Simulated assay, not measured.
Amino acid sequence: MCGRFTLTVPLQKIEERFDIEDTTLEDYEPSFNIAPGQNVAAVINDGAKNRLGVLTWGLVPHWASDPNIGYKMINARAETAHTKNSFKRPLETQRCILPADSFYEWKTENGKKQPYRIRLAGESLFALAGLWEKWEKKDGDKRFTCTILTIEANAFMEGLHHRMPVILKEELESTWLDPGIQDHHALQNCLAPIDSSIMEAYPVSKAVNNVKNNAEDLLNPL
């Protein structure tokens, strides 16, 4: 699964990396401990250009009666998303990218869970594959939410967890974002584990366990 990640770079770098032409992202600040239920930076394509805005992490299906269901939908299995009522529609036309520069995973060591920070070599920005949804009540209350797709761990991640978030290959990002592409097989080609050779990880402080902690020193290796 993917339950925490980071986005620590300046806004300009995000806009350049993902070819953003339009943004509604206000009051952006780097975050060292992004958690479910929080607002996250997200990239969508409106059919003509890439747009950067905000979604709440935890997908609320359009048919849900209770928006709190989103806390149970922070991740979607890439292998079966096309068969699930919650994810089938957004997989077809409401795909997004969540920019990130690392994510956290917990490994059991000596009976205790030790958090690790996982990143790409060179501390590169990367694209987490996501789905977004619009939920609206009759009184007009609207919520725009998202989930992160996960897949079976690659060789690098197997020692930490049996699942991992889908990190899109850069050359497939435009395919993933294109709302005009709805072919299941074309989309599945985007949802493969990234090459193990470009990943690295190191243990970090257990302070990351508390979502209230969001300081740069969380990134420091033990």
Rank of each mutant, 00 (worst) to 15 (best):
G180A: 05
L191F: 02
I14A: 02
K142S: 10
L160R: 10
N214A: 11
E216C: 12
G37F: 00
H161F: 06
V204A: 05
I69E: 09
L191K: 01
S65I: 07
A201D: 04
E29V: 11
Q94V: 05
N189R: 15
I118R: 05
T150D: 12
D217P: 09
Q188K: 15
E152A: 11
R17T: 15
I14G: 01
D101C: 00
K107Q: 12
E173N: 08
N209A: 12
D183C: 10
T147A: 06
R95H: 05
V208N: 03
E16R: 12
N45D: 03
G130C: 01
P10R: 03
S205V: 00
S31C: 10
V40R: 03
F18V: 01
L128P: 04
E216G: 07
S102D: 08
H82M: 13
G140I: 00
W106T: 07
N210W: 03
P193T: 07
M199R: 09
L98H: 02
N39R: 14
I34F: 03
V54M: 13
N85F: 07
V40P: 02
R4S: 04
K113H: 14
V208A: 01
V204E: 04
A81M: 12
A35S: 13
D183E: 15
E170F: 10
E16M: 09
T150M: 08
W106Q: 13
N75E: 10
A201H: 04
W176I: 02
R119S: 14
P115N: 02
E92F: 06
K206L: 10
P99E: 08
P61T: 09
E136F: 00
H62G: 06
C146W: 05
F126C: 05
I194K: 05
A192N: 13
Y104M: 00
L160E: 10
D27P: 11
R4N: 04
L125V: 04
T24W: 07
E123T: 12
P179K: 06
I151Q: 15
H62A: 07
P193N: 06
E136Y: 03
L7F: 03
F144W: 08
A76H: 06
K206Q: 09
D217R: 11
L222S: 15
H162R: 14
A201R: 03
E21N: 15
C96W: 04
K137E: 11
F156T: 02
T24H: 06
T80S: 15
S86V: 07
V211R: 05
L11F: 01
G58T: 01
S196N: 11
H161Y: 07
L168F: 06
I148N: 08
L172C: 11
A76R: 05
L160F: 15
G130T: 00
P179V: 06
E173D: 10
V54G: 06
A186T: 13
L160Q: 12
A192Y: 11
A127C: 01
A215I: 12
K72T: 15
N209H: 12
I14T: 04
R95V: 00
I20Q: 01
P203E: 12
T24N: 10
A201I: 03
D183W: 09
K107C: 13
K113P: 08
L131G: 04
N189I: 12
K107T: 06
K88C: 08
E152I: 08
K72S: 15
I181D: 03
L172E: 11
P10Y: 02
Q114S: 10
S197E: 14
N39F: 08
